[in-house]
Design a protein around this nucleic acid. Structure first.
Lengths: 208, 208
DNA sequence: ACCTGAACACCGTTCAAGT
DNA sequence: ACCTGAACACCGTTCAAGT
């Protein structure tokens, strides 16, 4: 029997399931993001992600070295979202002092409205050395750094390495976010709105 | 056959393995503390704890409802240790301002020298509603609260609910501790000694 | 090149049964 | 009352084999 002439290869590929085109990686990340939001970081399993993407349990290992690397992809998307939120605020024309306070409030708001992402981003189960994660994290931090530099130029903050100011600032915001998500502030009788708490604390830390 | 007269019951109990006296709970907690320090929070398993205590995998369930409750016991011991560290500082006669700064430095020092405990204490895997955990946590927090109240009485800090000052203070310290343990500050180019960072930031937040 | 099937070495948790 | 043995329903990860 003579072989049928081959249908053009790209077309053949296209008739397969979407995931076989080489974007299974994207599909897995997408499924992972949804799963983290649905079940939280504790209910997150590689097998369930594979199930949702409609592939075998071994398939993800073609695209991610291990679970920690898939979680890093989730965290990266988290930092991208956080960065977008912050850069939208940095783009608004506003009093420089107010801008820093707004950034702080936006940071905390994003964290408490995305507690699952936030826990993954700062948890100990993800691959902290993932290059994409590092750059996404740095970019979000740079938004804070930029606002501080602008305040320094306007003499609203003392001169010197802006990191010396950004370090405590980020620590304060992360502390408020993380103790709020963990309900730790609640447990010791602090029931303030975390955004208000952030604004007051930032004022004291930076502009007292 | 006549039954032998019973040997005194306490004596009979004492001849068994030590764990069968009713202190298996303590033995399990002890093993758990050691395991967390050896393998970190990720390598911590209930089965390994049981193995180290020399009992079956089901035995721990007589004393702890689940893994989250055993982790709460570990966290409780962590807060007890942290409390001891802080109360030793609060007991020293010193300038009240210096005492608050010293408390902050001690908090951060304890955290970064016990990263595994610290991650369990503020992680999402433990039972946060455990009563012992709640009181141990509150006691540690009260040490900070007390120092703030003393500063208020000496007019070194503004009057009002001390929690309004303690909240941001704890958040700042927790943020520094947690971002240091996670190497996040490092990744954005902040390589300061966390204790020095804590002191500087506390000065700015409280005594600027 | 990319995915599947099947296996390996683990988990947390439950429960009848032993003492 | 307290613990064991054995099971159940999962995990993450690996690897030969398929296409």
């Amino acid at each position: 029997m003579a072989r049928q002439p081959k249908i053009p290869e790209t077309s053949a590929d296209e008739r397969r399931d979407a995931y076989h085109h080489g974007d299974l990686k994207r599909a897995l990340t997408h499924a992972a993001l949804a799963l983290v939001q649905e079940k939280g970081p504790k209910g997150f399993t590689l097998r369930e992600v594979a199930r949702r993407a409609g592939v075998s349990v071994a398939a993800p290992y073609r695209h991610f070295a291990d679970k920690a690397q898939l979680l890093a992809a989730v965290a990266t998307q988290g930092f991208v979202q956080l960065h977008e939120t912050l850069s939208a605020i940095a783009a608004e024309p506003a009093d420089l002092t107010k801008q820093v306070l707004d950034l702080g409030r936006a940071y905390v708001r994003w964290a408490v409205t995305h507690p699952d992402y936030y826990q993954v981003m700062f948890g100990s189960e993800l691959d902290k050395n993932d290059p994409d994660l590092l750059t996404a994290g740095s970019r979000a931090f740079d938004e804070l750094l930029g606002a501080i530099v602008r305040c320094q130029r306007a003499r609203l903050l003392s001169d010197g390495d802006p990191r010396e100011i950004a370090g405590p600032t980020w620590s304060l915001l992360h502390g408020i976010a993380s103790l709020t998500i963990g309900r730790d502030l609640n447990h010791v009788g602090i029931r303030d709105d975390p955004q208000a708490l952030a604004e007051r604390a930032l004022r004291a830390l930076l502009f007292a």
